[in-house]
Computed example of a mutant assay.
Amino acid sequence: MATPWLVVGLGNPGPAYASTRHNAGFFVVDEAARRGGVSFSGPRGMFADVAETRLGASGFGAIGDAVKVVLAKPRTYMNESGRAVKALCTFHKIPVDRVIVVHDELDIDFGQLRIKLGGGDNGHNGLKSTRAHLGSGDFYRVRYGVGRPPGRQAPADYVLQPFPASMREDVLVEAGRAVDAVELLVSEGLAAAQNRFNS
């Protein structure tokens, strides 16, 4: 039986944060769950909302020759995301090299994605916490570009602001592209995903 994958979208819980740039990871795993035809629940001790689906040649929601994928949205705040990641890895026996973390990225313009394995935290508290709890930074990252704040606005304030209503459709399109990237990463590997999406 193939080892399952864990796809974690980083964000903050609660309606106050639901449409903010910092919750881009949540948008992506929500779209993955929609494609997979599954809904989230909150299993005890996991510190996250979790949905399980399968991924095969037809994408999420595949049956037959398909690998199990655990989708998760931590219910902790961003700086404690690693608690959920660690609990899920332990429970489902998922190694670090089968973990994909989807997160907002200030250093990439909106409308662009980057897929990578390992690397630093770049000041992102969700990545920092995940690295600390896993004891390794060698997990995959799907970086959803949100761009830099305008003028002298502090990055911390910028990422906690909602995407403008005028961008809502584009935000969902980008979430869909990020799910495509996750599907390709799992099915064909890092090089294939980077060649297609790290444009």
Rank of each mutant, 00 (worst) to 15 (best):
G9H: 00
G64N: 12
H22Q: 14
V69N: 05
Q112V: 02
I63H: 14
R177Q: 13
L10C: 08
G111D: 06
D121P: 11
A175R: 09
D97W: 13
R177E: 09
T3C: 04
E105F: 14
K128E: 03
V182S: 07
G45I: 10
S166A: 15
D170V: 12
G135A: 12
S187V: 15
V29G: 07
R143Q: 12
P164Y: 03
G126Q: 03
E188N: 11
A48L: 05
F60T: 13
L185T: 02
K128G: 08
G151D: 15
I63A: 08
D157V: 01
V70A: 02
P162V: 06
A57H: 12
G137W: 06
E183G: 14
S58E: 05
V179D: 09
L172M: 15
R168E: 15
P150G: 11
A33H: 14
M78G: 01
P150E: 15
L10P: 01
V85Q: 03
V142E: 00
R148C: 11
V29I: 15
A16V: 11
Y158K: 01
R114T: 05
F91D: 02
P164K: 08
F91N: 04
R44C: 05
L55P: 02
P74Y: 01
A33G: 12
A154Y: 12
D180T: 10
V8M: 02
G111L: 13
V173R: 14
H103W: 09
G64P: 07
V70T: 00
F110D: 09
D157C: 00
M167N: 13
A87E: 02
L134W: 14
N195M: 09
E52V: 06
A72G: 04
V96M: 03
L10M: 01
G176S: 13
G64L: 04
V8Q: 07
E174M: 10
V146K: 08
F40C: 11
F163P: 10
K68D: 08
F163V: 15
N122K: 06
P164S: 03
L88K: 11
N12Q: 09
N125R: 15
L185N: 14
I115F: 00
R83Y: 01
V101Y: 02
L172I: 13
G36H: 10
G14T: 14
R75Y: 02
V102I: 04
L6G: 02
R141F: 07
D157F: 00
A156R: 05
H22R: 06
L106N: 06
G59K: 11
V173G: 05
V142D: 01
A181N: 07
G14P: 05
R44H: 10
M46Q: 14
V50E: 03
I94Q: 14
I100M: 00
T53N: 10
P164E: 09
V179E: 09
F139T: 00
G111C: 08
L71T: 11
P43G: 06
G37A: 09
V173N: 15
E31R: 10
S129E: 10
L185R: 13
P164F: 01
S81G: 04
S129F: 08
E105D: 03
F60I: 12
I94H: 01
